[in-house]
C-alpha cells in the first residue's frame, strides 16, 4: 500500500514538474523564437511584395517604352542625360548650314543656378533675312530642345543680318531627385529605382 501511495505522489510531482518545465521552455525559449520568426516572416513578406510590385511596374514600363518606340530616342536627343556640348555645336552647325547661315563662334556654359539643368549657349549667326527667319524656325523646331532667352538683331554693311542669341539647352536632372517615396519601401538590394 505504501509503495502504491509513494508512486502516486511521485507521478503527481512529476506531472507538476513536467507542466512547469513545458511552460518554462515555451515561455523562455520557444516564444521568443516564435516572435523572431514571425517578425522575420513579416519583413520578408513585405520585401517580396515590394519586389513583386517593382517587377510589375518594370514590366509595365517596358511595355510602355516599347509602345513609345522612337519617341523615347527622340526624347533623349531633346533632353540628354548629361551635358553634351559636342552635340549642341553639331546641331547648331547643322541648322546654320540648312539655312545658308554662318556661325562665327559658340560659347557654352552651365547656367550657374543650383539645381538647374540648363546649359547656356551664346552664339551669333549671320545671313540673309529669309535665312535668318528660317534659322529661328529651325532652332525652335529642332529635335534638340532650345529655348531662346535673348536675341539681338542688327544689320551689317554687307547687307546681311546678324542675330546674337542667348539660348538654353537642357539636360536631365538627377533621377534620384525626382524619384518618389515608393522606393523607400523596397528591399535594399532593389531600391533606388523606378516608381
Amino acid at each position: 500500500m505504501d509503495n502504491k501511495r509513494n508512486s502516486g505522489i511521485f507521478f503527481n510531482i512529476f506531472a507538476v514538474v513536467l507542466s512547469l518545465a513545458s511552460f518554462f521552455v515555451a515561455w523562455k525559449m520557444i516564444l521568443p523564437q516564435y516572435v523572431i520568426n514571425k517578425n522575420h516572416y513579416a519583413k520578408v513578406d513585405a520585401e517580396v511584395n515590394a519586389a513583386k510590385d517593382k517587377l510589375e511596374s518594370l514590366k509595365v514600363a517596358k511595355t510602355s517604352l516599347d509602345n513609345l518606340g522612337t519617341i523615347v530616342d527622340q526624347m533623349f536627343i531633346a533632353i540628354p542625360s548629361e551635358k553634351d556640348d559636342p552635340n549642341i555645336i553639331a546641331e547648331l552647325e547643322a541648322i546654320a548650314t540648312k539655312n545658308n547661315a554662318y556661325i562665327p563662334s559658340i560659347q557654352i556654359a552651365d547656367s550657374g543656378s543650383a539645381g538647374s539643368s540648363a546649359v547656356a549657349v551664346s552664339f551669333s549667326v549671320s545671313g540673309g533675312f529669309a535665312d535668318m527667319q528660317g534659322f529661328v524656325n529651325s532652332l525652335e523646331n529642332d529635335l534638340k530642345f532650345f529655348s531662346v532667352k535673348s536675341l539681338a538683331i542688327s544689320g551689317n554693311k554687307e547687307g546681311l543680318i546678324n542675330l546674337s542669341f542667348q539660348v538654353e539647352a537642357y539636360q536631365q536632372t538627377d533621377s534620384s531627385l525626382t524619384s518618389t517615396t515608393q522606393s523607400s519601401t523596397l528591399p535594399s538590394d532593389v531600391s533606388g529605382g523606378i516608381e
Partner: peptide
C-alpha cells in the same frame, strides 16, 4: 536597362515640361 531608361525618360519628360512652360517662341 528598362529601369534606367524609364527613369531617364521620366526625368527628360519632366525637364521638357518645365522648359516648355517657360519658353517664349521667337518664331
Amino acid at each position: 536597362k528598362v529601369e534606367q531608361q524609364a527613369s531617364s525618360f521620366k526625368s527628360a519628360v519632366l525637364e521638357l515640361q518645365n522648359a516648355s512652360q517657360s519658353r517664349y517662341l521667337m518664331k
